[in-house]
Simulated assay, not measured.
Amino acid sequence: MIDLLAQLTAFRAEFSPLLEPLAKLLGAIAVAVMLHAAIFAFLQRGMLQEDTFLTRFLHRARRPLRLALALLAIALVTRSLTFPDRLAAILGHGVLIAIIVLVGWSVLVVMDLLTERSLRHHRLDTADNLMARKFLTQVRILRQAVTIVTVLLTVAAVLMTFEGVRRYGVSLFASAGAAGLVVGLAARPVLSNLIAGIQIALTQPIRIDDVVVVEGEWGWIEEIFATFVVVRIWDWRRLVVPLSYFIEQPFQNWTRQSATIMGSVFWYVDYTMPVEEMRVEVERIIRASPRWDGKVANLQVVETDKEAMQLRALMSSHDSPTNWDLRCEVREKIIGWIQTTHPASLPRLRAEMVAGDGASLSGHPSEAGPRPVGSA
C-alpha cells in the first residue's frame, strides 16, 4: 500500500507541471472550435443561403477551416507555454502532420470547387451535347487522377516525418533493384488503370453518356472512375469494366463523332410482293414519325433465295434510343400493312403435284412421281 502511494505521489510530482500547460492548450483548441461554430452559425443565417462561388467555397472548406483555426490556436498558445523536451517534440510532430493534412485537404477542396464551377457551363441534357461530354469526361478523369496523386503525396509526406520511415526509404532507394521490381509488379493493375485513365482523358475513345457495345452488351457510359468504368446496360444492369479494357480491347462506340445513327429493319416476303409499293409505304411511315431526323429513309432488296426476298429499310435518328423506337414502329406498322393489303405475299412454301405419267396437274411437264418443290 505504501509503495502504491509512493508511486502515485511520484507520478503526480512528475506530471503535475504538465497539467496547466495541457489545460491551456486544450482550452485554446476548444475556444477555436467554438469560434468556428459561431462564425458559421452567423453566416448560415445570411450569406450562406445564397448560391455563389464564395458560399460553395465556405460550405466545402468548413472542416478544413476548423482544423486551421485549431492549429492557429495551438501556435499562439504554445509560445507562452513551457513543455518538456519530449512532449514538445511530440506536440511539434503532431502539428506538422496536421499542417500537411490541411494542405492536402485544401488542394482537394479547391480542385473540387474549380471542377464544379467549370462543369456548370456544360450541360448534358441538350440535344447536341458532344462538346459537353468531351469536357465532362476530361475534367472528371483528370480530377480523379489529381485526387489520387494528392492523397498519395500527402500520405507520403506524413510518413516521411517519422525518422524510421525516412531511414527505411533511404535503404529502399539504395536497393531499388529488387524492391522496385516487387513494388512495380504489385502495383501494376492500379498503375495501368491510372495511366489508362489519363490516356482516355486525353484521347477520349469513350466519354460520359457515350453509347457503346462492350462484351456484347449495349448501353451507356454512366461513370468513369480512376480505375474502372460503369456501363449502364439497356435493361438497367451495370457492367463494370477496367479502364485498361478500353485501351487494350476493341469495342463499339456509337456516338464517337455524333449521336446521330442509322438503323435497319429486315423483312422476309414472297416474290409476289410489289417492292415499289412497299417502298412508298415504308418511306411514308418513316417520314411521318417524329423520331426520324430527316436524313435517311429507304427500302432495298438486299438478298434473295429460293424461298423469299429479304428487304431492308434504313432510317436515321438523332440518337440510338430514338432510333430503336423508330425501328420498332416501322417494323410493326409494315407487318400490319402486309397483313391487310398483301397477305398472300407473306413468306410461304409451294409444292407442285404431278400425275403418274409425268404430266403436271398444273399443265406443265414434270418428272414421274410426286415431289415437293420449294420456291419463293
Rank of each mutant, 00 (worst) to 15 (best):
I338A: 11
R284L: 02
F83R: 13
D209F: 04
Q257T: 13
T203H: 12
R284W: 02
S264N: 07
T260S: 12
E20Y: 12
I224G: 12
I335D: 06
W105E: 15
P290G: 08
R207N: 08
E248C: 04
F251T: 00
A376Y: 06
W220D: 12
T340Y: 06
A68L: 15
A37M: 15
S362G: 09
L76W: 13
E248W: 01
L35I: 14
P189K: 01
Q257R: 15
F40K: 03
W292S: 05
E281K: 15
A187R: 02
F228E: 10
L72C: 09
A355S: 14
A61G: 05
R238S: 15
W220R: 11
E50C: 09
V282K: 02
L114A: 10
K306R: 11
L243P: 04
Y245N: 00
I221R: 00
D51S: 08
H121A: 07
L152I: 07
M47T: 10
S175A: 09
V213R: 03
A201L: 00
E329Q: 01
K134D: 02
R350C: 08
C328M: 10
D3Q: 13
V170I: 14
L18R: 00
V373M: 01
L102A: 09
S192C: 00
L124M: 07
R188Y: 12
A174T: 04
V211T: 15
L67D: 09
K306H: 09
L67H: 10
D235L: 01
A132H: 01
Y268T: 11
V33A: 11
A68C: 14
D305W: 09
T9A: 07
G263R: 00
G184V: 06
I247R: 12
I224A: 02
V211G: 14
M160R: 04
I29R: 03
A30W: 14
E50I: 06
A313P: 03
A313V: 05
L136V: 13
N323C: 13
A6Y: 03
L35R: 11
N323Q: 12
S316P: 01
L314R: 05
V282A: 08
Y268F: 10
E217Q: 08
T340S: 08
V302D: 15
A6Q: 03
I335H: 04
S320T: 03
T272S: 14
R133T: 01
I338R: 06
L43E: 09
D3N: 15
A297H: 01
E281N: 01
M315R: 02
M315H: 03
V354Q: 08
D3S: 13
M160P: 00
G197K: 02
W220H: 13
V275G: 04
R133D: 01
A186C: 07
L311S: 02
I221S: 00
A355C: 12
W292Q: 05
F57L: 06
M315D: 02
A98T: 08
L54V: 14
L299R: 05
P274F: 01
R79A: 13
A13Q: 10
